[in-house]
Computed example of a mutant assay.
Amino acid sequence: MTRFVRIIIFFLTLFILSGIATSATLNEPLINQSIPRNLSEVVEVPDVQSILTNPTQYYGKTISLKAVVSMTYPEKKQFNMADRVGCSLCTAKNAKNSVIISYAGEIPKYLDIIQITGEVIPEKNKGYHINATTVKK
């Protein structure tokens, strides 16, 4: 085989393989579009108070938040998170100092300190909630 033919075969192989790789990512099903494809798309939120102070700045964004579970509602697949301040906020009367988290997986236990990743979703006439995609202890 001549050198020229080998070079052509080499480039054709590269071209075909790059096409296969590209079409695989383009045809990939989008199961959950809210899961960020790039970690730089996740906004690190320092505390619950940051969300409570200005929730609209987080609407539609994927956030990461570490806080304490202040209330649980397993039947609704929800729980509340509050800042970790001796957990004096972990009472029903202080629910306004927490954020509501919806999660399809196992609901964490009361007073667990967890890290969540999820999207802040505005609700009609009810403020907002966070739809968690991951919950880690």
Score class of each variant (00 low, 15 high):
Glu44Lys: 05
Ile63Thr: 02
Thr2Asn: 14
Gln49Arg: 10
Ala67Lys: 06
Leu65Cys: 02
Ile35Arg: 13
Tyr73Ile: 06
Lys66His: 06
Arg37Lys: 11
Ile35Pro: 03
Ile9Ser: 11
Pro46Ile: 03
Ser50Asp: 12
Asn32Thr: 04
Ile35Asn: 09
Ala21Asp: 00
Leu39Glu: 12
Thr62Val: 15
Glu75Asp: 07
Thr56Met: 13
Leu52Lys: 13
Arg37Glu: 06
Ser64Arg: 11
Asn27Ser: 13
Asn32His: 06
Leu39Ala: 08
Ala24Gln: 10
Gln33Asn: 08
Ser18Thr: 15
Gln49Val: 08
Val42His: 04
Leu30Phe: 10
Glu28Ser: 03
Asn27Phe: 11
Leu65Trp: 00
Pro74Glu: 02
Glu44Arg: 01
Pro29His: 03
Pro46Glu: 12
Ser34Ala: 09
Val68Met: 09
Gly60Phe: 07
Asn32Trp: 03
Ile7Gly: 11
Phe4Arg: 11
Arg3Thr: 11
Phe4Tyr: 08
Asn38Ser: 02
Val68Asn: 08
Pro29Phe: 01
Ala24Val: 05
Pro46Thr: 05
Leu39Ile: 06
Val43Cys: 00
Leu39Met: 05
Val68Ala: 07
Ala67Ile: 05
Leu52Glu: 04
Tyr58Gly: 04
Ser18Pro: 00
Ser40Met: 08
Asn38Val: 01
Glu44Asp: 03
Val5Gln: 08
Arg3Val: 05
Ser23Phe: 12
Ser70Phe: 07
Glu41Ala: 14
Ser18Val: 03
Phe11Met: 14
Glu41Thr: 08
Ser40Phe: 09
Glu41Arg: 11
Leu17Lys: 02
Phe15Asn: 14
Pro74Asp: 00
Lys66Arg: 15
Val43Leu: 00
Asn27Gln: 10
Arg37Ala: 07
Gly19Glu: 09
Asn27Met: 13
Phe11Ile: 15
Asn54His: 08
Lys66Leu: 01
Leu26Lys: 10
Gln57Phe: 04
Glu41Gly: 08
Glu44Phe: 00
